[in-house]
Amino acid sequence: MKPPRAFLVSVAAGLGTLGAATGFGLVLQARAHALSHELPPWAGLPLPAGATPETLRISGRKLFLASCAHCHGADALGDEGPDLHGLQVSDRRIATVIRRGIPDEMPSFAKKHSPADIAALIAYLRTLE
C-alpha cells in the first residue's frame, strides 16, 4: 500500500479503536447505572431501628456534611473531590469506597462510620440526581 493511503488507514484504525472503546465504555456506564437502581439503596446493609427512607436521607445528609462536604462540596457538586450527583455505580461499590477509600485520593472511613451510617450516606447520595 502506498504511504499516503497507509497513513490514512493507520490514523483511521487508531481513531476507530478509540471510538469503539468510548462506545463500549458508555454501554458499561449505562449498564452499571441500570443495575445500581435494581435494589433499594439500603439493601444488604444493617439499618437503625425504625429507619425509613426519609429518616435515612436526613441522617445521611448530616453525615455527608460532617465527613464528605469539605472535599465534595456542601452541595455534592464537587470541589477537591468529584461531583456525586447521578452516581452510576452500585451501592456495594459506594460502600466499598467509603470503607476502604481510594489510595492517594480519598481516605478510608471504615473506623469513623458504621454500616448503618454508610447505608444512610448511600440513601442520601441516591437522592442526588
Binding site: 458499561l28 456506564q29 468529584p82 452510576q88 489510595p103 492517594d104 485520593e105
Partner: peptide
C-alpha cells in the same frame, strides 16, 4: 488492556485524580 480496564471501572472513561 483497554477492554479489561473499562470492565474493571464499569465504563469510567476519564475518572478523577490518579
Amino acid at each position: 488492556a483497554a477492554v479489561s480496564g473499562l470492565l474493571m471501572t464499569r465504563g469510567d472513561l476519564l475518572g478523577h485524580g490518579a
